[in-house]
């Protein structure tokens, strides 16, 4: 079986459809397409052996193919509040940087995530964070505050967590109990854009930490594969549900590691989605849970593992 690897294609608008067709023909999937003025960025999964072929074909079009470890993941960047103390830097810079390596990032500003004694997390925030593949908590400067407030704002979160804060990595590891999946020290309340080399190095460190955490999760999934590869299901949905083409969202269907977020109203489309035949005699409802998302009125599709369904599409 060919291994699909996440890559980013950057090139011009001119003849980019040929690249999209090529990826499709090779059995790959385009997860996200950004058109910015004359430039196109395609976040995609392509067979490992064919990357050179794509590079060769893209060369006359001045297109570049780069590995992007976070393609096909949806990451929550959680900030303790939406006040000027925590935004726009560093939360926006982190979210933006992760987008460059292919992740779909959502920023979540908690209603009452500030203060060491008064910090808390409400059920809506908890559920929305849990709909992601990973959560990055962008915390502040004081060790004492992080130690006291973090248990409150992680309560009920079962997705992997990467914590950032001003104390160094060792201190974060020491004060966070139970341990989080990843730590990046030295990023606290930064009141300016990340621009100095050491600040940019911190962002690279964060990308490495997030990739490492997600790779561990991918390994887990590989042991008991999903009934259908999410980007494949995404392609099927986009082909079969005409309304998706009418949505104006940048990503009408968002790929996650273990499912999809479909930006159609749950009340109107959930039943149709469950009944949708995605392979011979296999309905979507057989291999996935179609759930209401806490994010607006979207639909969350969680794909069940092979061990549960006995079906592999």
């Amino acid at each position: 079986m060919t291994t699909l690897v996440p890559v980013t294609y950057k090139g011009g608008v001119y003849r980019h459809d040929e690249i999209m067709d090529l990826i499709d023909d090779l059995g790959g999937y385009v997860v996200q397409k950004h058109v910015m003025a004359q430039d196109v960025v395609l976040q995609s999964f392509v067979p490992r052996d064919d990357i050179d072929l794509i590079r060769r074909i893209a060369k006359p079009l001045a297109g570049e193919v780069a590995e992007a470890p976070l393609v096909g993941t949806e990451i929550a960047v959680v900030s303790p509040s939406l006040e000027i103390h925590h935004l726009p830097h560093p939360a926006c810079d982190i979210a933006e940087y992760l987008r460059r390596v292919g992740a779909k990032t959502n920023m979540i500003g908690l209603a009452r995530g500030f203060g060491k004694r008064i910090a808390n997390l409400n059920d809506e925030e908890r559920d929305i964070i849990n709909e992601h593949d990973l959560a990055i908590y962008v915390l502040g400067n004081f060790e004492e505050c992080i130690e006291k407030k973090f248990p409150a704002i992680r309560q009920g979160i079962h997705v992997p967590i990467v914590v950032t804060g001003a104390p160094d990595r060792e201190t974060l590891e020491r004060i966070i109990d139970p341990p989080a999946e990843g730590y990046v020290g030295g990023i606290g309340r930064i009141m300016h854009r990340f621009k100095r080399p050491e600040e940019l190095a911190k962002l690279d460190e964060l990308v490495d930490e997030v990739s490492r955490t997600l790779d561990a999760r991918r390994d887990d999934i590989a042991r008991d594969p999903l009934s259908v590869f999410p980007p494949r299901l995404m392609a099927i949905l986009e082909e079969q549900i005409y309304e998706i083409a009418l949505l104006t969202h940048p990503t009408p269907v968002t790929a996650q590691m273990e499912g999809l977020r479909v930006k159609l109203p749950y009340d109107l489309y959930a039943d149709d989605l469950r009944a949708l035949e995605i392979a011979d005699g296999v309905a979507l409802g057989d291999i996935a849970d179609v759930l209401p998302s806490r994010m607006r009125n979207y639909i969350l599709v969680r794909i069940k593992p092979f061990s549960e369904t006995g079906i592999l599409v």
């Binding site: 400067n141 004081f142 060790e143 004492e144 001003a166 104390p167 160094d168 201190t171 606290g188 309340r189 930064i190 009141m191 300016h192």
Partner: peptide
């Protein structure tokens, strides 16, 4: 907190 002290010095200056 020495780390917090340095961080706040930067925050205040900026």
């Amino acid at each position: 907190d020495p780390v917090g002290r340095d961080a706040y010095e930067r925050v205040a200056a900026i």
